[in-house]
């Protein structure tokens, strides 16, 4: 089977400081990869390099495109990359405000990607928006409300609906539960797990929260100082950590 995403030798430097270096992995269709590490470990830099928000100094990010098979997205033209960004790829930001249009209704937010790829039937767009609100557990009657009228948890669920409506094949998530209350986090995680299974999504999730990866990720990479120090199946890594840093990370959670 061809990997959906092949990452090879990614390196990003800020002047002399290393953002991340020597990162490589394959992601297969339907797989969820978790990237954990403390802040400053380079995990967000890596995610932004993979998603095309940052230009890495070295490496390849090869995506198995529908039309032309595996293509290095870093050498794509901007129109191609942007097209990918609104069709097969999706990006869930940590802060919902970064991923939503706050002055546009919930329906408009969900409908934007549909309209961007050519949907021109108002009724259909609206029906799909209401359907997706239901799938992320937001009442359909709120379709004309603006996100400013939503709670933090609802905003985050709306952001997820807005991203998933066009059926992307790869979702990047940056601390999707960060900044939410613990009870709200649990509900969101449940929802995400359901959607990932149901849609057979492939995803790359960056988080500092081991509970998130234990619940969602098939595989795990642990990052420290810009390097991957350990990787493997999630359960394996969390239950039997080999690297001293991973051991510290796991034990610090257990002590809580």
């Amino acid at each position: 089977m061809t990997p959906l995403l092949q990452v090879k030798g990614i390196e990003k430097r800020y002047g002399t400081r290393i953002g991340c270096t020597g990162v490589g992995f394959d992601l297969y269709p339907g797989e969820v990869m978790g990237i954990v590490g403390e802040s400053g470990s380079g995990k967000s830099t890596l995610l932004n390099c993979l998603a095309g928000h940052l230009e890495p100094d070295a490496g390849q990010v090869i995506f198995d495109t529908r039309a032309n098979g595996p293509v290095d997205t870093l050498t794509m033209s901007e129109p191609e990359r942007r097209m990918l960004g609104r069709t097969d790829w999706a990006f869930v930001h940590q802060h919902a405000r970064d991923g939503l249009r706050m002055s546009v209704s919930a329906g408009g937010n969900i409908g934007e990607r549909l309209m961007a790829v050519g949907d021109r039937h108002y009724g259909d767009i609206r029906d799909k928006a209401i359907d997706w609100l239901g799938r992320v557990e937001i009442d359909g009657t709120r379709v004309d409300d603006r996100p400013t009228a939503f709670s933090g948890g609802m905003q985050q669920r709306l952001q997820i609906a807005r991203n998933l409506v066009t059926g992307p094949r790869l979702v990047f998530m940056d601390e999707p539960t960060g900044g939410l209350d613990v009870s709200v986090q649990a509900r969101l995680l449940d929802l995400l797990r359901g959607l990932v299974r149901e849609m057979g999504l492939s995803a790359i999730i960056v988080t500092h929260d081991l509970a998130v990866v234990r619940l969602l990720a098939d595989r795990l990479m642990v990052m420290k100082d810009g390097h991957v120090v350990e990787s493997g199946l999630t359960d394996q890594v969390l239950d039997d950590p080999q690297h001293a840093y991973t051991q510290l990370l796991v034990s610090s959670v257990l002590q809580v």
Partner: peptide, 19 residues
Amino acid sequence: HSLEEYGLMHVKLYEDISQ
């Protein structure tokens, strides 16, 4: 314009109708 990204224009019309 150069990338022909006009989705936002229809979002505006969508918002008109919904409101």
